[in-house]
Amino acid sequence: EWIKFAAACREGEDNSKRNPIAKIRSDCEEKHPITYSISGVGIDRAPYGIFVVNPRTGEINITSIVDREVTPVFVIRCFAKHSVTGIDLEPPLELRVRVLDINDNPPIFAQTVFTGSIEESSMDNTLVMKIIASDADEPNHLNSKIAFKIESQEPSGPPMFIMNKYTGELHLANYLDREQHSSYTLVVKASDRDGAADGISSLCSCNVKVIDVNDNFPTLAQSSFSASISENSLSSDLLRIQALDADEEFTDNWLAEFFFLSGNEDNWFEIVTDRATNQGILRVIKELNYEYLQTHSLIIGVRNVAAFHHSVARDFQMSGTPLTIEVKNVIEPPRFHPSSVVFSVSESTRVNYVVGTYTAIDEDTGAIASNVVYSIGRDPAAWFRINQNTGEITLNKVIDRESIYVINGQYRAEVLAITRGVTRYTATGTIVLSIQDINDNCPTINTELRKVCMHSPSVIITAKDRDGDPYGPPFTFSIHGEPQTTWIIRSINASSAELVSQNIDFYIYRIYISVRDNQGRRSSSTTLSGAAIGLMFLGGLIFVLIPILMSMSDCCGCGPGAAGGVGTGFEPVPECTEGAIHPWGIEGAQPEDRDVSHILAPTTAAGGDFCEPSDIYTNTYGGGGVVASGVEETTGVGYGTGTGYGTAGGISGTGEVKGSIGGTIKEYREGGVNMAFLDNYFSEKAFVYADEDEGRPANDCLLIYDHEGVGTPVGSVGCCSFIGEDTDETYLDTLGPKFKTLAEICLGKEIEPFPDVNLPWPCVNVTFPNPESDLNLPPPGTTIVVNGCAPMPPPVGTTTVVTENTYTSGSTIQPPRPMPDPLLHGNMTVTETYTSGSPSLCVDPLRASNVVVTERVVGPASASDLRGMLDIPDLADGSNVIVTERVIAPNSRLPTSLSIPDLVDGSNVVVTERVFRPASGMPGSLINIP
């Protein structure tokens, strides 16, 4: 139930004269006393008290002026209550009172000033902007209906704009030209009641900016321009050319862009725009030559930076403006032209060679300058001299393309031409000597010795060649000598390779590596590089160390030292085992050092004079001969079992071994080395070491030794590596004395003698040719005494480590020398002996009784070579390689002659002999030599 609008009042007026505006009555008042009441907005809620009711009669009066814009409708809620009980006798009734609108509000603009812009030359009716206004009177009522109108325009004149009366949109009504009026100001009126005369109006301002477009072509201030400049000079502001343009200043529509239509083909000039003045600045950027051209006639044009507006673009016509530059003549000094000249010569060109003639020019005449004196200016290597009158240039020195002053094959120097007379001018020219390279340098190997890890042994080899292409990389690296069975070279890149061992071992390898350049020029073995010096030196050391190492690793374990075959010591050859693979050498487990003097000393032994001190303990290696290798044991079953076997023969044969070891590793391979055995052998070692890695200090000493191949020079360098921490040498303390000595030698340390209360060590010297000047190894037949010191006869009770080696070349193997009677006194250890030449051993025989001799011989199984030295059967296949090893540990009653051992007392001699990879046809009876 509801009540429709029932009453109305007018805003802004005193409506009280119309009271009561309404009256309410209940039919209950006939039976009950009733009190009427009202509530709601305008009564008991703000605005309060506008309406009141008479409680008895129910008449409702309005008491105040109302504002429709504040409260457009009042809702009066009417009640009829029992006057005594106050109970509502009727449901409440709502009486709505509407406030009638009057036009009491003007239009209000959204902005005080409206601004907009439009490009000049725009089309008619283009929308410029929209004016917005509102009216607070009753919506959709005439009192709030606004009409817009342009009241005025500034600048005046024809109306440029038109206003939409109802929407307030301002449109373009005429052609705009910014260059005429860049902006307009309009006064716009908004009136309600649809613009009727009784409406209320408001005014606003509209500013319209006219945007510039490039509709004007630039022009030059003058119809022609001219300037002058001296020849051979430059100018950054020779002339200013004023441009004129009606478009908006400092915009791209206004800024001029100058260009040459003709006359500047050689780019002598350029014009840049001064953006502040719109002037073109003429610059001379290349020296002008009066003798070449006295006047430059240029035609210049101008346009704007911005493109022309489409409305005028088709009207543009390029017009040229003449610009004349006069060149002034000046007196010029001589000059080299061209400023540099290139001469090509071969690197082999000799001194006094006439390179060519380089003369200065008289610029004014264009002829060769006649009044000048030539001289050489900057000439860092002083290669040139010049004829002061003719400018003829001659080589003053032998040129070297590898000189530090030669860059990219070119050497540069300066030639000066100085005028005679009081006022002197100097012209400078550059001569470039382009040197054609020749292959006059061998590649050199730059490989530092590195510690070679047993599990990943490798050495990076790099090479370089002072010659350039095509005489440099790629280099070809080659291994020479025996270790090719163990070592391979893997190419890394054009100038380096990796030397890798697949089965590295505790043995000494001497590896000789050569490198060839791209043109086949090889690093000569007789012209070792600096890098090779170190190798050579270490190679020498290796020769020194081989016997030591071998003695440590191969000694039969029968001796007292055998018990210590763990940890850091050498592991001994298992006593009396036959055919077993000898564990690789671990220092400390071999039989303790024994004096061998008693088996070496007798000077009365057959064979002649052994007492030349210089020959004592000489290990002699023949050229290319395989002396020792990483393989030390044999698979021959039953070898080394016979006590006393070959004792004397082995020793006596020592000297002859050399003669029998002409074979090389190549021959090994060709003879059919049991590679399976080798692989298995070294693999087993590797596995064992792998298991022991954590418990083993990484300070094993590893000497790598290899032998050159056939035809390689004698005494070629070897390689020696030592595994250990670079910064921590304490590991040396964990080594046994022998191995420690090895390590110290490897490290270049001064070797500490074993405890010796009697005598110092024999001097251990290593003598090489001057490594700086010439490290060429001697030709075949030359002997290099690595240890040149004559050994001193050790006194009784001393221990001597013999580290003397002699490299002996020559294809002729010297006949074996009988060994002296080893009945010596004192302790003497001869670790390895190879003899090919002069008497090799001579020690004081009056020494202690213990002798340990370890010997290895590797060589072709030429029975004839061995015959007489070793009492072994003939070998059917002469190409077979035999490795024999003997350990002789006689007691004090060793026979007096090593060459003819007295086996009657064989119980005092332990001889272990092994043959490595015997020929297939080699009888096993080799071990049965009595």
Binding site: E1, W2, I3, K4, A6, A7, R18, P20, I21, A22, K23, I24, R25, S26, D27, C78, A80, E90, P91, L93, L95
Partner: peptide
């Protein structure tokens, strides 16, 4: 019933009462 009368003015400025009743919508 609960009645309400509203005073209205005609074009001549004469007032007259108009009665409204509750109506069902």
């Amino acid at each position: 019933g609960f009645h309400v009368k509203v005073k209205e003015w005609d074009e001549n400025g004469m007032a007259r009462w108009k009665t409204f009743r509750r109506q069902k919508r």
